[in-house]
């Protein structure tokens, strides 16, 4: 498919609504039968209102294994100017960004890729907010992406881990994950996917085998934390 054809395709908004909506799996669904997509966004900053997404990386987990053939990475041609700091963090220059795809195509393409899967991210609320904002801004529909937080999973399923672990780096380091290109959207998505994979295996070994079981386990952990906080 050529770029022209793609552009034609993306100009059709017919199925946009359908593309932005999907429901989580049925409660009894076995974890190993669920298709997961871990995503990571790089942005111009941390303000979900003002800042914009400049790169999206995503990795698919299917049958409890990461499919390298189904990884997703896109740099977005955001008009927003980059702060110097961010250039350092992302390693994305203004030139690379200006050569990226248009935001609308990017978002569409991501939704196309991720549609139907349970979305995962490390500190998911941020990625969820950023992506939902981009959907609204460029596709003109509001949506709720079914994102779940790998950071919460880790706390629930690895109670033996020290409590000071916070960031993706902390957890990657704790599990000794190899990653030579951190802060690249696709690589961070991969790190999150590997952590998710560890969680899913741990869940199975703890007798948690269904979607609902996993949800309950995580919810129980959050509740416990809240009670302790009070």
């Amino acid at each position: 498919m050529t770029l022209d054809q793609l552009t034609d395709f993306f100009s059709m908004d017919a199925d946009v609504k359908a593309l932005t909506r999907w429901s989580p799996p049925p409660p009894g669904q076995a974890l190993e039968d669920i298709r997961w997509v871990t995503a990571d966004v790089e942005t111009t900053g941390l303000n979900t209102k003002k800042d914009v997404v400049i790169a999206i990386g995503a990795v698919e987990i299917d049958g409890l294994s990461i499919c390298l053939e189904q990884t997703f990475e896109l740099v977005i041609n955001a008009d927003a100017r980059l702060e110097n700091d961010n250039i350092l963090i992302h390693g994305l220059s203004q030139q690379t960004l200006s050569q990226g795809v248009q935001p609308k195509e990017a978002i569409h393409s991501f939704l196309n890729y991720a549609h139907g899967a349970v979305l995962l991210a490390f500190h998911a609320p941020f990625d969820k907010a950023m992506l939902e904002k981009e959907v609204r801004a460029h596709l003109g529909v509001s949506c709720r992406l079914p994102f779940y937080d790998v950071a919460e999973w880790l706390k629930a399923l690895c109670p033996e881990a020290p409590s000071h672990l916070r960031s993706l780096d902390d957890w990657s380091h704790y599990f000794g994950l190899y990653n030579d290109q951190r802060h690249h959207a696709a690589c961070d998505a991969m790190a999150a996917a590997e952590l998710a994979l560890i969680c899913l295996q741990k869940a199975c070994s703890q007798g948690v085998t269904t979607w609902k079981g996993l949800q309950d386990k995580v919810a129980a952990r959050i509740k416990l934390e809240k009670m302790r906080a009070h």
């Binding site: 409890l64 294994s65 990461i66 499919c67 390298l68 053939e69 996917a193 590997e194 994979l197 560890i198 899913l200 295996q201 741990k202 070994s205």
Partner: peptide
């Protein structure tokens, strides 16, 4: 064409 799998 490969995958990554985890074994506890």
């Amino acid at each position: 064409k490969s995958s990554i799998e985890f074994f506890p």
